[in-house]
């Protein structure tokens, strides 16, 4: 295991100083909207919480952390923030371009699905990391400080309704922010708001429910209703919905080996079919054990890649 205090300390300093767990400005990783016709006004603000954008880089980082897990070399993490200017360019170099492109494609699809269902708009300057890792690792003080910063920005922009892209951001904004700040936004996952049309997709998919959607927010049945509308064939495994099992992702930065072993257990439960995921962390961690997984947004859109 990587010493939790090293990871928590690094995360906290990066998030509080730059607003981003990698210690870079959001503009460097948030590029999906540049090739999309986005609206700057509407009813629902699209808020990605930066998780889809961050995941490709986090996965590259985890592959290196795995190499020195349990070794004394990990103490170099103490000095990592002093080399922040070097860290991200290096990480960018070793991160597969196709992973970044896929994340961008997922966000474009989600926006497109929303655009054809509700009055959605996007303001890149308002989109910020959600802070969930700080909360997960028990750094409540830093999480509260960051959450207050995010809420202040959103309130100053007079935002009332927020639609999110992933389960972690949905849970953070809907449940945690009101506990830690004076946030009172109406928050929905994009899966709750979209009205997908019929799509032509062959084969059968197996659903992997993320813990936050299955147990914490209980929207698994709603997701299945949307899938039925599109005519996509899907199958549930024994441990799904409220009884879903974790992909192992939440501890990948602390103990990549145990995280991978948890993913292997989940992969066995899911079987050899094509797996549908709804969370960037689940998608990446299940792929670490060679699961044939795809994000649900890529399936809900037509072959053209866009919602009609």
């Amino acid at each position: 295991m990587i010493d939790p205090s090293l990871i928590v300390d690094l995360l906290s300093k990066n998030v509080l100083e730059t607003g981003n767990p990698l210690g870079v400005s959001n503009e460097k990783i948030n590029n999906w909207w540049k090739e999309t016709k986005i609206k700057s006004r509407g009813e629902w603000l699209f808020f990605t919480g930066m998780l889809y954008q961050l995941t490709p880089y986090i996965e590259s980082l985890v592959s290196y952390l795995e190499k020195f897990e349990n070794s004394k070399i990990q103490s170099i993490l103490k000095f990592a923030r002093y080399f922040r200017f070097l860290a991200f360019p290096t990480l960018k170099l070793v991160t597969p371009k196709r992973s970044v492109e896929e994340s961008n494609e997922i966000l474009k699809n989600i926006y497109s699905l929303l655009d054809s269902s509700v009055e959605v708009f996007y303001i890149p300057e308002l989109d910020t990391y959600n802070g969930i890792l700080l909360y997960d690792y028990g750094d409540d003080e830093s999480f509260a400080t960051h959450a207050k910063f995010v809420v202040k920005k959103l309130k100053e922009a007079n935002i009332k309704k927020i639609v999110t892209a992933d389960p972690h951001t949905t849970y953070a904004l809907k449940v945690l922010y009101p506990k830690f700040t004076d946030a009172d936004f109406e928050v929905r996952s994009y899966l709750e708001l979209i009205n997908p049309k019929k799509v032509s997709k062959n084969g059968e998919f197996v659903i992997h429910d993320p813990c936050y959607y299955g147990r914490y927010l209980e929207i698994s049945d709603l997701v299945r209703e949307k899938l039925k509308k599109t005519g996509i064939n899907y199958k549930d495994v024994r441990y799904s919905k409220k009884l879903t099992n974790c992909c192992g992702g939440p501890i990948e930065a602390l103990t990549p080996k145990i995280s991978k072993a948890v993913a292997e257990l989940r992969a066995k439960e899911l079987g050899n079919s094509k797996i549908l995921t709804m969370c960037p962390i689940c998608l990446a961690n299940l792929r670490r054990v060679n699961v044939d997984a795809i994000d649900i947004s890529l399936v809900l859109c037509n072959e053209s890649g866009r919602a009609e």
Binding site: L243, C246, G248, L254
Partner: peptide, 26 residues
């Protein structure tokens, strides 16, 4: 710190202990 916070244990607890929250707050 290897607790995933997934909440799978919580629904099985007959005494209603919020185990993931206990571990997280610890």
């Amino acid at each position: 710190f290897t607790c995933l916070g997934c909440g799978a244990c919580k629904i099985h607890c007959p005494a209603g202990v919020d185990i993931p929250e206990a571990v997280r707050s610890f």
